[in-house]
Simulated scan of single mutants.
Amino acid sequence: MRFIDREEVAARLTYEVCIPIMRQAMIALSRGETKQLLRSIIPLSEGRLFGIMPGAMGSHAPFGAKLISVCRDNFADGKQSHQGLVVLFEPETGAPVCAVHAGEITAIRTASASAAATDALARKDARRLVLLGYGEQAASHAGAICLVRDLESIVVWGRSPERAHSFAERLRTKLGLPVSTAGSVQEAVAHADIICTVTSATEPILRGEWVRPGTHLNLVGSSYAGPAEVDNDLVLRSRFVADSREGVLHQGAEFIRARAAGLVRDEHIVAEIGQVLMGEIVGRRSAEEITVYKSLGHIVQDLASAWALYAPQSPVPAHGI
């Protein structure tokens, strides 16, 4: 059984490689070709979770599971908040064949999926990116979205001004773009074209009234029912696209809160991103529309990424991804 460590994942699963993989994975999910259960999450203690995500890329395609821990305090120590394994099983014999570093796959595939969604939903002339948060996902989202839009500037907001400034300096050096910080969320998003919420906020930090017409948002930080990064008004005002309709209906915190308040119904989710990517449903309908991509992350994204690393010369059968 092979093990693919963090360094190999980072070296081989680049954004250029992963973004097309995410497009195809999400199209396959929306076509009903993949199989997955809703993730099971076990709360361990404050800021610590353990998740189990099983699934298959098709009826006769690779299958497996992600075992992932989320420890928010790791960030302060310079460690990944998401740690674990993606375990792959060979489709014909059912034998386990590979375990892959899940933390690095999660960082890359999440940002790559957001980049694919941004390419489909953001205005073509979007140039100003705002990152709400300064952790690993903020860095990966900046790197991935640079590949789908010609960014002119990035603005960063975080609860610690010192950490936000330090992160902005590192990002400026890495990407060669102007990167500044903002003192408040409202200030940060005032001129945004694209906003990525990648925080560990438990209550909304972004209000709909602060978001200008034509903005695209990737809501990423909350991946289970409970914590919410944006308020009900933003959900109500937006053209709301899910990575998985079933997932967001059951575990998309921002949507669930707005629905519980009686502001939206299930039909407010206009599409899955796979439906937009395959051209089945229109994403953005006008330059003034606010679009939202709600990202929970799904096992088919992890399996597709892991299989590409394990068997790059063995594509998934046509009836799979």
Score class of each variant (00 low, 15 high):
R2Q: 11
R2W: 14
A10W: 09
A11P: 00
A11H: 07
T14G: 08
C18K: 03
P20L: 01
I21Q: 06
A25E: 02
M26E: 06
K35L: 09
K35V: 09
K35N: 09
L38Q: 11
S40K: 15
I42H: 14
L44I: 13
G47N: 07
G47Y: 07
L49I: 14
L49T: 10
I52L: 12
A56Q: 12
A61R: 01
F63P: 00
F63L: 08
V70G: 04
C71T: 15
F75Q: 15
F75K: 11
G78H: 11
S81V: 15
H82L: 10
Q83Y: 14
L85H: 15
P91A: 06
E92I: 11
A95P: 04
G103C: 00
T106Q: 07
T110E: 00
T110K: 00
A111Q: 01
S112W: 08
S112F: 05
A113S: 11
S114T: 10
A115V: 01
A115D: 01
A116W: 03
A117C: 07
L121D: 02
R123E: 08
L131Y: 10
G133L: 00
E136F: 07
E136C: 08
H141R: 08
G143M: 05
A144Y: 05
L147H: 12
D150C: 06
E152A: 11
V155M: 15
V156E: 02
R159F: 08
E169H: 15
R170N: 09
L171K: 11
T173S: 11
L175R: 03
G176M: 03
V179S: 10
S180G: 12
S180C: 10
T181Q: 02
Q186E: 12
V189L: 01
A192Q: 07
C196H: 00
V198I: 14
T199M: 04
A201W: 10
R207A: 09
H216S: 06
N218F: 02
Y224P: 00
L234V: 14
L234H: 08
V235C: 01
R237M: 04
S238F: 01
R239V: 06
D243S: 09
R245E: 09
E254S: 10
I256Y: 05
R259Q: 06
I269A: 02
M278C: 11
M278Y: 11
V282K: 15
A287Q: 13
E288N: 15
T291N: 04
T291Y: 02
S295V: 06
L303T: 06
A304E: 02
W307C: 01
